[in-house]
Design a protein around this nucleic acid. Structure first.
Length: 230
DNA sequence: ACCCAGGGTCATA
DNA sequence: TATGACCATGGG
């Protein structure tokens, strides 16, 4: 089916900056990432792969109960125990393996302080070499655990930017990321809020009942399909 | 009962 | 390069 582009108010062109401004004005700061430490952010980034955050919170709570929200403790745990603690977040066998791969890398690299001394490009390459860490998980970690100016491209971001006509939507990850970063300019605070706002807008609002007319970002979410004339 | 969720790996063409 | 199968729980 052919999607009609919903015109924004006036004829002002939609830009990345204008999208951010509208989201921020409407929702305000989101205070991401919800984690108490950089390491907890890293764990959360793996556990939330294709998984609702509410389920991730339960798994993280299980880790805390077993004093296992710690890289050495995760390495010391048996795969079966770890998988059992991760059960609520789904894919528990896969994620148990991925967490141990991440922790082995983290410890062998010398921990957070050592990793924080690496430049962003090298750190990103290193993360992508960890089994179970793909581009989006790596960028979550870079932005929210290491505070590097890296823009996270997730499914929501693709859908929003595509529906607003800024991207085709099926571009390769790297191409889309570099275009966005080049357009916005390296800004950790901006990238942090923007990604969080996109997720907030995609789930909490549109799903309950579209406020899309109110927030002036029509056609940006699944619930907005009915607003689209074909 | 069905759909989706803050993806990634691996096999195949 | 680009699909498809697979991983698995929990909420709407």
């Amino acid at each position: 089916m052919v999607r009609a582009r919903i015109p924004n108010d006036m004829n002002t062109p939609v830009t990345l900056q204008s999208i951010y401004q509208r989201l921020y004005d409407y929702y305000g700061p989101q205070h991401w990432w919800p984690g108490d430490s950089p390491f907890e952010v890293m764990v959360g980034a793996v556990l939330t792969q294709n998984t609702a955050w509410t389920n991730v919170e339960k798994a993280i709570a299980n880790l805390q109960e077993h004093a296992a929200l710690d890289p050495a403790a995760i390495m010391a745990a048996s795969g079966d125990d770890l998988a059992d603690w991760l059960r609520p977040s789904g894919y528990f066998n896969v994620k148990a393996s991925r967490l141990q791969h991440l922790c082995r890398w983290y410890l062998e690299a010398g921990g957070y302080a050592a990793l924080a001394r690496m430049d962003t490009v090298a750190l990103r390459q290193a993360l992508l070499c960890v089994h179970g860490v793909g581009p989006e998980t790596a960028d979550d970690i870079l932005l929210y655990a290491f505070e590097r100016p890296v823009f996270v491209i997730d499914a929501y971001t693709r859908r929003l930017f595509a529906r607003l006509g800024l991207f085709e939507g099926s571009e390769p990850y790297e191409g889309m990321r570099s275009r966005v970063e080049g357009s916005l300019g390296a800004d950790v605070g901006l990238f942090n809020e923007f990604h969080a706002l996109i997720v907030r807008h995609a789930k909490e609002v549109c799903r309950v009942r579209p406020l899309c007319a109110g927030c002036e970002l029509s056609a940006c979410c699944p619930g907005c399909d009915s607003d689209l004339a074909d």
